[in-house]
Design a protein around this nucleic acid. Sequence first.
DNA 1: GCAATATTTCAACACTCGTTGAACTATTGA
DNA 2: TCAATAGTTCAACGAGTGTTGAAATATTGC
Lengths: 128, 128
Amino acid sequence: MEKAVALQVFEALSSPVRLDVFRLLVQAGRAGKVAGEIAEALDVPPTNLSFHLKGLTQCGLASVEQEGRYQRYRANIPLMLDTIAFLTANCCADDPDECADLRRGTPAAAPFLPALEPVARARGTSRS
Amino acid sequence: MEKAVALQVFEALSSPVRLDVFRLLVQAGRAGKVAGEIAEALDVPPTNLSFHLKGLTQCGLASVEQEGRYQRYRANIPLMLDTIAFLTANCCADDPDECADLRRGTPAAAPFLPALEPVARARGTSRS
DNA sequence: GCAATATTTCAACACTCGTTGAACTATTGA
DNA sequence: TCAATAGTTCAACGAGTGTTGAAATATTGC
C-alpha cells in the first residue's frame, strides 16, 4: 500500500462524523446503508453527511451504488485491513518476542486507554 | 475505548510527518528512538518534529522518556491495537461468513494481525 | 561558570477543514 | 406533466492545522 492512501484513510477517519459513518457501515456489512438511513441513525444533516460520505468514498473507504433514487454505501473492509497492515509493517524491529509481549499486554477489548503507560514499561524496570 | 481517543489517534496518524514518525517508532520497537535520530532519519526540522511528537504523545500514541539531554520516544502499540479493535467492533452485522470473505486476500504482514481475530469471530464462531 | 548540544516553546502566517442554508439534479409515483 | 422525495453541489464563514525562525529551557563536558 502506498503511504498516500494510508494518509487519506487516516484523515478520513479523523472526523467524528466520518468515523461514526464508517463504523456504522462496518457494522452493516454487505448490506450497507442508504444515505437516508445513515443520516437518521447518526442525526446528521443531509448536506453535511453528503460532504463526509464524499470524503469516505474518495479515499476508497466506502463505495456507493445507486438504487433508484437512493445511494447505498458500503464499507471497504479490505482497504481498512490493508491500512492496518501498513501501519504495523516491520514492527518491533522484527523481533517476535517483542510483538508477543506487546500483544499479551493488550486484551482486544480493553475498556480503558493505556494513554501514557506504553512500551516504555518493558524497558529496564520489569524485564531483564 | 472511547470514541474521542480513537479520533485523536486517527487525527494523529493523518499527518505525513506523524505517520512516518509513528511507523518508525513501531519498527524500532522497545528500543525507541531519540528525537535527534528521528529528525535525521526522516529529514524533518527539529522545530517541526517537536510539534508532531507532541501530537503523538498527547494522544497517547507515543511515550517520552528523558535520557540525559535526549528525549526517547516509543510507540504505544497496545493503544494502536485498541484503536483497531474499536474500528472493527461488531463488524459485518455479526455474520462470521461475511467477515471470512472480506478477510480473504488481506496481506498477513505483521505479527499483530492475529489481534484482528475479533473481526472474524465477533459471534463466538470457532473457525480454525 | 560557560559554551555546546538537544529539544521545546512562541508568534505569525498561509492553508485546509467542517458546517450550514440555498439552490440544483435525479428519480419515483400519480 | 407535476409534485414529492433523495441526495449532491455551491458559496461563505469561522475554526483548526502545519510550517518556520527566533528565543527559551535543560543537560553535558570542560
